[in-house]
Each structure stands twice: as structure tokens, then as C-alpha cells.
Design a protein around this nucleic acid. Sequence first.
DNA 1: TGATATTTGATATACTTTATAACAATTATC
DNA 2: GATAATTGTTATAAAGTATATCAAATATCA
Lengths: 171, 171
Amino acid sequence: MTVSKAVDVTRAPRPARKEGIDNATQDTPIQLGELAGLLGYSLKRAQLKIFEDFLRCVAPLQLTPAQFSVLLLLDRNPGRNQTEIANTLGILRPNFVAMLDGLESRDLCARMRSTYDRRSHILVLTEKGRVVLARAKKLVAAKHEARLNELLGPANRATLLGMLDKIAREF
Amino acid sequence: MTVSKAVDVTRAPRPARKEGIDNATQDTPIQLGELAGLLGYSLKRAQLKIFEDFLRCVAPLQLTPAQFSVLLLLDRNPGRNQTEIANTLGILRPNFVAMLDGLESRDLCARMRSTYDRRSHILVLTEKGRVVLARAKKLVAAKHEARLNELLGPANRATLLGMLDKIAREF
DNA sequence: TGATATTTGATATACTTTATAACAATTATC
DNA sequence: GATAATTGTTATAAAGTATATCAAATATCA
């Protein structure tokens, strides 16, 4: 229904050539044009690639990047509640509930009512959570980040990280 | 229901101090820890920031980054069909249909049946589409990319772009 | 040539991510 | 002590992303 009437887009029907403009360009690669200079475009494509690789590397542990980041934060910051962890990661509190449900049902972390503010749930890693996190760290370092180092070199990798952090913080 | 029993996580109830571990850490900023060294994490945060800014800068034209990228490709690559454009942008063909419906309903582009392969829809920018794209390019260059140049400097921006492209292509 | 396979755009559908409003329980404020 | 704010939660919706399937059209090849 959104399809317009059939129109010949070829500049002119040339009987001598068998192909119109749409066929003539078929073997030519599509030009990205100014898209190749757009930082946001490259950023998005690179991010997708890196998340794909992260998922592959850590597949044996069935952890997404977001789940891994939660476990990391819980390990480094004991005694924090849901709101604090979610805010730090840019996760909205309502969405963090289901995410924690998943981690808790796998016995990777636990919620405990704070005795000082009974509204809060203090988040802690379980023993299994610590084990899984340790394994995940090793996989990420040995497979994921190592592959990045191989591609960019340590110095470039550090430079890249610095610029990305600057954008994330100051932009 | 997923909430575990109330447990006091404070190491020991010390009567002399009014605050347990969960309260004592409340004024301390959360430590990102190794999260700060994870490229994927910084990449994601930076990408979100950049897309937010893109949306702000181009808000008068009501274009998302994805829509902008489609218009750019159509302008540079006349005579291509939906599959070619969608594949280039990493958009799945079924999802590209609704996206094109939106652009076509705003008279920014049009589908035309190819006379050489009547299965295909040749995509073309409308006159309005060209005008809107030109305005969008100016907004992006003058506001969005200019701000990035200000933050990073032209040389660093080019370096960043190069590394992101390398990741997107070779990783 | 004609039967079979492939391609194209489209529909239906589902899952994930992200976003907002509202609620009960609890705590803070004045 | 009344009112406001916070916490975790539920419900819900809008995007984004993914797969299977279909009819029409084209390609393949025996």
C-alpha cells in the first residue's frame, strides 16, 4: 500500500545496453559516503562488534555485558543497594528488578534487607557469583581483551579507551 | 517473591557507630573498578552520549541516526533496492520495511518498481528528502561534529575514527 | 521448455531493551 | 504528627532486533 506506481528510474531506455541504472550498479559496491566520516556510525558498528565478541568469549558462563558489569560492581562495592548500582550503570531502576531476578535465580547474587533502611535491598555476590565472576574475568582478559590488544596494540587501545571515556564523561 | 530473608550484612552491630556498612558507604562514590578498563563498557557509554547529542542537534528535522544514514545512502547510491541499502546498514530486511514506510509517508523517499527486476523496489530521495538531508548535514556538521572536534581536537577525532573503523571491519 | 530453486518485499511474531507512571512500605522533613 | 521523599516493585508501552513464512518474480538447469 505504501508502494508507489511503477516508474522507470533509468535515465533513458537505451536499447543498446541491456541494463538500466539499477542493474548497472549491482556489481558496484555501495558507497558509504559521508557515513564513513560520521563518528556515531563507526561507534555504533564497533560497539556491536565488540559486544558480539564479548558474548562469544563469555558464552560458557552465559553472561551478557550488562550482567557482567553488575557482578563486577557488586564485587567492588559491597553493601550497596539496587538504586545505587542501577544508577551507576545507567540502568533504570524498574528495569533493574528483572535483571536482578535473573541473577538471583541463578544464585549469582542475593538481595538482603538493610537493617538500617528497611526499604533498601543490599546487594551481595554469592559464593557462586564470585566464582563465576572470576572465571568471566579470565575469559574476558584471555580472549576478548587480548584479541583487541592484538588488533590495536596496547598503546592504541589505551588511547582509544581514553577518548571514549572522555566522550562518555564530558560530552 | 525473589526477595530473600532479611539478613544483617553489617560485619557486626557496633552500638558506638550509628551506621552499618550500607550506610557508611553512602557518601562514598561507587568504584567502577575494572569496568573502567573494559573497552566495551566505555564504547557503549560513549555511543549513547553521541546518539543523544545527534538527536538533539537534528531534532528540528525529526531524524534518528538510522534514518539519517538511510537518506545519506540513498543520496549517494541512486538506483539501489531495499535489500542492498538495508544490508549495507546492518538492518534486517523485515525491519527495513516499516522504516521505509515512515520515511515514505513523510515524503522523504519513494519506492519505485524496477523495470528490470519487478521484484525490486528502487529507492530514491524525493525533492523534499534532498532538502531535509541537506539541512540535516548542516546541523550535524555545525553542531554535532563541531562539538566533538571541540572536545577531542581534529587529530584525535581522526585517530578515534580510524580505530573504530578498524574494529568494525576487522574485529 | 518447464520444473525447481532463489530472490525480493512484506507480514506476522517474538524477544530484548529502554522508558514512564503508579503503588505500598518505609524513612525523612518540617 | 502531617506531609514529602525514597526504595523496590509492577504494569505497561515504545523501540530495536530476530526468525519464519508468504506471494510474486526471477534464476537455474535438467
